[in-house]
């Protein structure tokens, strides 16, 4: 074995998730990992920012009341997004990779005077680069998010979207499939080749990436 990280840096779950012990996961009961997901050190995952009926502006403390939240949100008239269980704050798909110091934060919106959180859904084979801050509403499969990227609130990154390093995806932006965005504010600057995402080539390295973690 090559001289590697301190043994046991990662907690490996039954479904093969590799989670660094030095990551900061808030409200784990509101987070769903798809299996074989990697979460690196110092990543911050804010599962505690799940939807409540009334203002959750200062609810950074992880409230364990998932059931309570459900009840309350049921009373809220504006249950627009059809999420089966509103207490899920963050979903991360298979082979998705969260680099060091990434911040995953459910998006929020002021709707009719009420500030409420919406779930953050991240698909399979997604790569999120170091120090990126992701507040998207949804991130599709095979999406690449470069390092130091900011993905604004309620943004939607479709499958095979590619966000260049340092880009700032403005709130509410939609990045279509196969499109490359960059800059601040991010705009479409190019398209990916048809071979992107082929297993083993660029965009198709998620399995390899997973395998290398903690070895």
């Amino acid at each position: 074995m090559p001289p590697k990280a301190t043994k046991g840096e990662y907690i490996e779950t039954d479904t093969g998730n590799k989670i660094s012990r030095r990551s900061l996961i808030h409200g784990p009961q509101h987070i769903i990992l798809g299996g074989k997901t990697v979460i690196q050190a110092d990543a911050v995952i804010r599962g505690d920012l799940f939807r409540l009926a009334h203002s959750t502006s200062s609810s950074s403390s992880s409230l364990g009341g998932g059931g309570g939240g459900k009840e309350q949100s049921g009373s809220a008239a504006a249950a627009k997004t059809a999420s089966p269980s509103p207490s899920v704050a963050i979903t991360l798909g298979r082979y998705s990779y969260v680099s060091k110091q990434v911040i995953l934060r459910p998006p929020s919106r002021l709707h009719r005077g009420v500030h409420s959180f919406y779930p953050l859904k991240i698909g399979d084979h997604v790569f999120i680069g170091e120090r990126a801050v992701v507040e998207a509403a949804s991130v599709g499969n095979h999406v690449h998010i470069g390092k130091d990227v900011v993905v604004g609130s309620m943004a939607i990154l479709k499958d095979f979207a590619y966000v260049l390093d340092g880009a700032v995806v403005p709130p509410g932006m939609v990045v279509p499939s196969w499109c490359v965005v960059g800059g601040a504010p991010a705009r479409i600057v190019g398209e990916l080749g048809e071979g992107y995402g082929v297993e083993g080539a660029d965009g198709g390295l998620a399995r390899d990436r997973y395998r290398m973690v903690g070895r």
């Binding site: 590697k4 990280a5 301190t6 840096e9 110092d42 060091k100 083993g200 390899d208 990436r209 290398m212």
Partner: peptide, 21 residues
């Protein structure tokens, strides 16, 4: 499909030197 990686150490150098410290 060709892939290149340095022989001795971790096979994915730029990407993930998984040890932080």
């Amino acid at each position: 499909l060709s892939t290149l990686r340095p022989l001795v150490p971790s096979p994915y150098p730029g990407q993930l030197p998984s040890s932080t410290t």
